[in-house]
Write a protein that binds this DNA or RNA. Structure first.
Length: 851
RNA sequence: GCGGGCGUGGUGGAACCGGUAGACACGCGAGACUUAGGAUCUCGUGACGCAAGUCGUGGGGGUUCAAAUCCCUCCGCCCGCACCA
């Protein structure tokens, strides 16, 4: 028997699939379509295990659906713009374009080695002008539709490098290269009005039934619809008013201060004549802009000296503070603080010695004895200390306050969203240029259609900090199309989420001159199954949902939702290793001898840490290429699928890979033995039963594996296939009927592993005597007659504890089961002569005797 | 800080809708085969116990004839937070 030569076999079938264009997709109205898409990768250099997992999952779905008769679209491309290319340019003096192209070439070759059934004819990279040209047009369409506007927004500013920093470039409030504390700066930037669709994006979540519940929840919370009131506070000694949004208008009588954001117009105004306040505002402008950074910093405030008048009592004055925890972007950038019923307000009030008056008391505690300690009270109750609201429920009080505010012209009911408009301007080189001109006479203008696309210039340098587009000698200088005078280009580029917000539609017509060919897009969209990491649960998916609606509004496509089904896969993890001195060690650097782990080079002991997400910084990475070289793509794929369910984290272990490898070889041997045909033996009567049992097993397995794959239960499917493999191995003997049954069962196993281990399956399929490619074969169908179970095993419990089992025909008579259960010796013993209170018989499942 | 999730043997996990916990693997132990094997095959393997049996799904509490599954609470870990992709 020959050994399985995986390397030669895998390359052979990959060449045949490509030659025959097995996976090229064409629109065909006579067949049901199925569009399966994995999140396309950023070409960072080499593929990592996360990619291998993601693309294996997608490929299994693609191959399975193809076998089930669907017309499958399964494309792949490159999310090619982004920060790492610029970092490489600065650190290694390679041009971002060259670096990106090189990485794409490497990674394409690595993906092809995995045997993924992509239609490579549809491949594109988002840094191709043929790709980004269309998004410049889309942006101008959106501008015409009123979906785009320009305003100032905060950025992280590195004062040493004179550069805008991404949040990830801010480490502990300092620039990653300069090490200096970052500042917040305001810059004019372009925004897309995603908030115009806030309601729709929220409401439609309900209809995304094939999305994970948790992703829908996260999006719901992100959009953050909240009902409340807009309250206008008059200001002592002034004519203008302070506008505040609150979700708790019922607590208005518990207010003890107002707080405004550091860049609120009132704060800025008061700082003009108040150096201490100005210093405080400057202090607030230090530090990173991320919400996590802002919300975890110490809560601090500064009294502006302004006093707000309570809307229901002009005698009642509330101090107005500037507070560093009030977010400019949320609501009106101003709040009223009710310390008794909001934790942040309480922390603030305790720090600044402000009164804490409870106004809602839980019904089971008397109003008199209710007081607030270290924790704000957020629960339900009745209003107290609140004049005309006393005794009302929270809901009633909200309604009543709002009614009175409206009557007094001091406020109104208001629905507010946490969702903010999407800022798309980036002060970077390696992105899609924003097609806008700035003329000193005519103002801000769109680049005329005829001049599109605005191409990125290639001749740029990264020696100086800041945006190379901005300091390019000629690129930004243009003639104004309106007045013929000198004008300049916008030197910002788009957020790279822009590219990934419509690439799924471009795959439908990747070569169409007009970007999206309606016939093709209408045929393929929406994506039936989208697969990718949970880390994209909010931003990428929400932007894509918005973009799809914006494109629909411009008539470029006809669907609302881009992704009908979504699967979010978990991370790939590995144990971590550290040397005694704390250095991280790579799995390649350590050896295990029994329970002892040592450093390969020095023989010094190694501390084994828990399994964590593979990351370069912890060195716990395993390179997929090495695994594929050593074991082949099928083994890597099988391991990715067999242990953990896709949505859960997967722990990469050598032992697990070995296990997968052994199964590959076991199947190979079994098929080799089966086709070698040892001399036949005479059969006997017992063969019939064994053959029939295997036959039933085969059909049960077909049915269960089909169901498992439908539900993405790949690990269960693998377990079922292994069980059937064990059954085939257990059927010994060389009589003709046994031999025939074994060959048939192996044929089915080969078909079932087809989507999981396509190369091995293709090879074995041929060896079993088939001429057609397995990749083109239909999926096996289970015979329903063989799926009916005729006997069941019932558990018998006494007071919920298992005391024995009974075998019965399906749907046997309950009275019979009951008496048989009571007759079991162990059951009788457990009852011990006590009186029966009840006997519960759950048909075909369990009997519980209650005494 | 806010939002979301996860937790089952030595390990990864299985268990449909509340109904026999631990399928399938990995690891480990014993044996067989072999010149040899880190190959292959057979048997065993949740814990405690000689056994009968008892205990057991992160901890505590509750609902139920019956809870890994439902409810409350606590703990631990992970992910996202708008300029990483």
């Amino acid at each position: 028997m020959s050994r399985y030569d995986f390397a030669q076999t895998e390359l052979k079938w990959q060449a045949i699939w490509e030659q025959r264009r097995c996976f090229a997709a064409h629109e065909d109205a006579t067949r049901p379509k199925y569009y399966v898409l994995e999140m396309f990768p950023y070409p960072s250099g080499r593929i990592h295990m996360g990619h291998v997992r993601n693309y294996t999952l997608g490929d299994v779905v693609a191959r399975f659906k193809r076998a089930q008769g669907f017309n499958v679209l399964h494309p792949m491309g490159w999310d090619a713009f982004g920060l790492p290319a610029e970092n490489a340019a600065m650190q290694r003096r390679v041009h971002p374009a060259a670096w990106t192209r090189e990485n794409i070439a490497t990674m394409r070759q690595q993906l092809q080695r995995m045997g993924l059934s992509y239609d490579w004819e549809r491949e594109f990279a988002t840094c191709d002008p043929e790709y980004y040209a269309h998004e410049q047009k889309m942006f101008l369409d959106f501008l015409r539709e009123g979906l785009v506007y320009r305003r100032e927004a905060w950025v992280n500013w590195d004062p040493v490098e004179n550069t805008v920093l991404a949040n990830e470039q801010v480490i502990d409030g300092r620039g990653w290269r300069s090490g200096e504390p970052v500042e917040r700066r305001k810059l004019a930037q372009w925004f897309l009005k995603i908030t115009e669709y806030a309601d729709e994006l929220l409401d439609t979540l309900k209809e995304l039934e094939r999305w994970p519940e948790r992703v829908r929840l996260m999006q719901e919370n992100w959009i953050g619809r909240s009902e409340g009131a807009r309250v206008l506070f008059r200001l002592a000694g002034r004519d203008d008013r302070l506008e505040v949004f609150t979700t708790r208008p019922d607590t208005l009588f518990g207010a003890s201060f107002c707080a405004i954001a550091a860049d609120h117009p009132l704060a800025v105004e008061r700082a003009e004549n108040n150096p201490a306040l100005a210093a405080f505002l400057a202090d607030c402008a230090r530090g990173a802009t991320s919400e996590a950074a802002i919300e975890t910093q110490e809560k601090r405030g500064f009294d502006t000296g302004l006093r707000a008048l309570h809307p229901f009592d002009a005698e009642w004055q509330l101090p107005i503070y500037v507070a560093n925890f009030v977010l400019t972007e949320y609501g009106t950038g101003a709040i009223f603080g009710c310390p008794a019923h909001d934790q942040r307000d309480l922390d603030f009030a305790r720090a600044y010695g402000l009164p804490v008056v409870p106004v809602v008391a839980p019904t089971d505690i008397g109003a008199a004895s209710f007081s607030i300690g270290a924790e704000a009270y957020l629960g339900p109750g009745r209003l107290i200390n609140s004049r005309f609201l006393d005794g009302l429920s929270v809901a009633e009080a909200k309604a009543e306050v709002t009614r009175r505010l409206v009557a007094d012209g001091a406020g109104e009911k208001k629905i507010n969203f946490r969702l903010r408009d999407w800022g798309v301007s980036r002060q970077r080189y390696w992105g899609c240029p924003i097609p806008i001109l700035n003329c000193p006479k005519c103002g801000i203008l769109a680049v005329p259609e005829a001049d599109l696309p605005v191409r990125l210039p290639e001749d740029v340098d990264f020696e100086a900090p800041g945006n190379p587009l901005d300091r390019h000698p000629t690129w930004k200088h243009v003639i104004c199309p309106q007045c013929g005078g000198a004008a300049v280009r916008e030197t910002d580029t788009f957020d790279t989420f822009f590219e990934s917000s419509w690439y799924f539609a471009r795959f439908c017509s990747p070569h169409a001159a007009n970007g999206l060919d309606r016939a093709a897009v209408d045929y393929w969209m929406p994506v039936d199954q989208y697969i990718g990491g949970i880390e994209h649960a909010i931003l990428h998916l929400l932007y894509s949902r918005f973009f799809t609606r914006a494109l629909r509004r411009c008539g470029r496509l006809g669907v609302d939702e881009p992704f009908a089904g979504l699967m979010t896969q978990g991370m790939v993890c590995h144990e971590t290793y550290r040397a005694e001195d704390g250095r991280w060690l790579s799995p390649d650097d350590v050896v295990r001898e029994g329970d002892r782990w040592t450093e390969h080079q020095s023989g010094r002991p190694v501390v084994v840490g828990r399994s964590e997400k593979m990351s370069k910084s912890k060195k716990n990475v395993v390179d997929p290429e090495g695994i594929i070289e050593a074991y082949g793509a099928d083994t890597a794929r099988l391991f990715m699928l067999s242990d953990s369910p896709p949505e859960r984290d997967l722990e990469w272990t050598d032992a697990g890979v070995e296990g997968a490898w052994r199964f590959v070889n076991r199947l190979w041997r079994m098929v080799e033995t089966a086709v070698e045909d040892a001399p036949a033996e005479a059969g006997d009567a017992s063969d019939g039963a064994a053959v029939a049992a295997l036959h039933r097993d085969v059909h049960t397995t077909i049915s269960r594996v089909t169901e498992d794959l439908d539900k993405f239960g790949f690990n269960r499917a693998v377990a079922r296939i292994r069980e059937l493999t064990n059954s085939v191995a257990d059927l010994t003997g060389e009589t003709p009927p046994i031999r025939e049954a074994r060959r048939k069962a192996l044929g089915i196993i080969v078909q079932l592993i087809g989507p999981l281990m396509p190369h091995l399956a293709e090879e074995l399929w041929q060896r079993l005597g088939h001429n057609r490619l397995l990749a083109l074969e239909p999926w096996p169908i289970a015979d329903p007659a063989l799926l009916v179970k005729d006997r069941v095993t019932l558990g018998v419990q006494v007071n919920g504890k298992l005391r024995g089992t009974l075998e019965f025909a399906m749907n046997a008579d309950e009275a019979q089961i009951r008496s048989a259960a009571l007759a079991l010796p162990k059951v009788a013993e457990a009852i011990g002569g006590r009186a029966l209170r009840k006997v519960i018989v759950v048909p075909n499942r369990i009997v519980n005797v209650v005494v």
